[in-house]
């Protein structure tokens, strides 16, 4: 564990909590892509199956459980409890266009051809692109509420901080995982546009609105 990894994990946790608070307080999931949330739930469940096979640490186990439970809770809020507020019409990204290629890629490029390892690799690839339906929704409506913007910023920062963690681990421990590094870089790049808008608009107190 190093400072970058811890900061990344906390940023990830903050993102998830922000999203749940936003939905709960406003009693609405307007502006949130249910498609992205489905993908994140698939990511956590397929990645953390090793909960039953490998014990790393109490921290590791607790965080994995929190991620799985909170992603399922988010889906429950969106598709059951506050279903009426969910923006079906704008959330029209076809997730099979992400799920299928990620799974095929995991079958082709992986560290080991075992069920758990293939699912882990699939989850890494899928996580890299899971935010696309959300970004697509923001681009369709042309704006995002400030708390949604904070959520996206925290979620994007997490993988950027992990990139620093991987650089640190490479030098400090000689440890590296090319699959995670490559997918993490793609994931971070996808947020760059958003980071720019966040810093130039949201931090100056303006609403995140896309240029027409």
């Amino acid at each position: 564990m190093n400072i970058f990894r811890l900061a990344g994990d906390l940023s990830h946790l903050l993102a998830i909590i922000l999203l749940l608070i936003k939905i709960w307080k406003t009693r609405s999931c307007a502006g949130i892509s249910g498609k992205s949330q489905i993908l994140f739930a698939v990511v956590y469940i397929s990645r953390y199956l090793d909960l039953v096979t490998t014990f790393v640490s109490v921290y590791n186990t607790v965080m994995k459980l929190v991620f799985i439970v909170s992603s399922v809770a988010t889906l429950y809020m969106m598709y059951v409890k506050f279903k009426a507020t969910y923006d079906h019409n704008h959330d029209s990204f076809r997730i099979e266009f992400l799920l299928v290629p990620c799974f095929v890629l995991a079958l082709l490029i992986h560290a080991a051809f075992t069920p758990l390892e293939i699912l882990w690799t699939f989850s890494i690839y899928l996580e890299a692109v899971a935010i696309l339906p959300q970004l697509f929704l923001v681009s369709k409506t042309g704006e995002a509420e400030s708390i949604t913007s904070h959520y996206l910023f925290a979620l994007g920062s997490y993988r950027a901080l992990y990139l620093l963690n991987w650089i640190y681990r490479y030098y400090a421990e000689g440890h590296y995982d090319l699959i995670a590094i490559f997918a993490g870089a793609i994931q971070t790049i996808l947020y760059c546009d958003f980071f720019y808008l966040y810093i130039t608009k949201v931090l100056k107190g303006k609403k995140l609105q896309l240029p027409a």
Partner: peptide
Amino acid sequence: TGKDQQHDEL
């Protein structure tokens, strides 16, 4: 990255 690799990150 090896076969017996343990994924200790989240």
